[in-house]
Design a protein around this nucleic acid. Structure first.
Lengths: 227, 227
DNA sequence: CCTTTGAATTGAACGCGTTCAAATACGAAG
DNA sequence: CTTCGTATTTGAACGCGTTCAATTCAAAGG
């Protein structure tokens, strides 16, 4: 026994797992998610149908595996985006664009994630309990983007901001996935406009006369905490 | 031939259609949506499996039929909510609460709508093309709630507001559906807090020094228009 | 009455995600 | 090398949403 991968035991098993995923992604991309059968996926990888289920809990789980893989690969791009500038807007743009680039080739595929994603009780939902770790990791990037940026945030707002920015990003991703405008130009425009708004809001939020509004906003945020 | 209903020809057919829906809703409520089989639904209504598909395009379509039915019934409550006060916050509360009351008994059922709902290409999505009419009708209620209320909105913002409020409401409904806190208390708190925020935002949005922020917000709204 | 035509109804069959009992490979222990 | 326990692999079978060719029903026209 040598391997030390997430699930697998032997290195060979790990290899099979990857072969299945790679083949599946190719099929999904070429003929679409719904149109690809788990039997196809298995056949493509040269294994029996059941084998696919030995390595992945469900068809959706393949999509999730893809998602996690991009998350790994994003590290580099994110680090670079943050190191290259102190301008918060540019940092956020960098993170957001990096994600879109990764997803670009598989945009259609992600609609599949939507369907299970909206229900937080689903094990594969980005809002659910089982994905907490991935989620917190993602949120941490926004904390890093804020740290040492050109925008200073009010103390009371600070602890909430990374999570808020993450949710904002999820919203953009959602829009991007369902965006039918050519090249998702629309999402591009919205990203521009909302980033402007978000950063300006942050900047003015510390001004004295914004106190009451900020207090109300904080009340909203607190309303989200615990049951 | 007497009947003059949406789809049906004879009155008997219309009756069958309703019998199927009523039975289905009962089963969904008693044992859950996923746990109820289309064969169960048909059997409950005393017809063959295929008959259910003669009257409803899909299992999800049954949920949509329920949704549309509540929409009909909401008219009264909405009218009353708007007539009873000029206070915008109270009006909105009235509309929102009325909706929650209607849904209350079938909360679990609506998770089913979520799954197809997120994809605007799905014929049953509240954001899709095929549901445009229902959507516009709902949005119109918010236009009515704003008219003659105690909050005056800036001219440039006015045309967007009904749609924005509708989306806000959809967001609350989403949260309510997935809210696991007892009695959906959490959604209640969030509704309180966000309504406060929304109304205050509207009130201060006309103030002179809010100009730049409002302009940026409008830019966001325009970014959503056309491809 | 009989015929025609389209609505309404049937239930078997299909496709696909998923499960599972059984078979096999394979490294470790003796 | 044999034995054994676990990892892996298999493919048939299951359940359920959905489709569909075939059949029945009912009203209108002759």
């Amino acid at each position: 026994m040598t391997g030390t991968s997430e699930r697998g035991q032997t290195a060979k098993a790990e290899e099979t797992r990857n072969r299945i995923l790679d083949g599946a992604l190719r099929l999904f991309r070429e003929r679409g998610f719904e149109e690809t059968t788990m039997r196809d996926v298995a056949a493509e990888a040269g294994v029996a149908t059941g084998a696919a289920y030995y390595y992945y809990r469900s068809k959706q789980d393949l999509v999730m595996a893809f998602y996690l893989r991009t998350d790994e690969q994003a590290r580099e791009a994110f680090t670079e985006a943050i190191r290259s500038t102190k301008d918060l807007k540019k940092r956020l743009r960098g993170i957001i664009d990096a994600k879109f680039e990764q997803f670009a080739e598989h945009r259609g595929l992600l609609t599949a994630l939507l369907k299970t994603g909206v229900d937080p009780r689903d094990p594969l939902s980005p809002f659910g309990e089982e994905t907490r770790q991935v989620r917190e990791d993602s949120i941490a990037w926004y904390a890093r983007a804020l740290e040492g940026s050109d925008v200073s945030v009010p103390k009371d707002l600070a602890p909430h901001l990374p999570r808020l920015l993450w949710m904002y990003h999820m919203g953009l991703i959602y829009h991007w996935i369902v965006d039918t405008s050519p090249g998702q130009r629309r999402t591009g425009r919205i990203t521009d406009a909302t980033l402007d708004l978000v950063v300006q809001l942050l900047k003015v939020s510390s001004l004295p006369f914004m106190g009451p509004l900020r207090k109300r906003a904080l009340k909203v945020l607190r309303a989200f905490e615990d049951d």
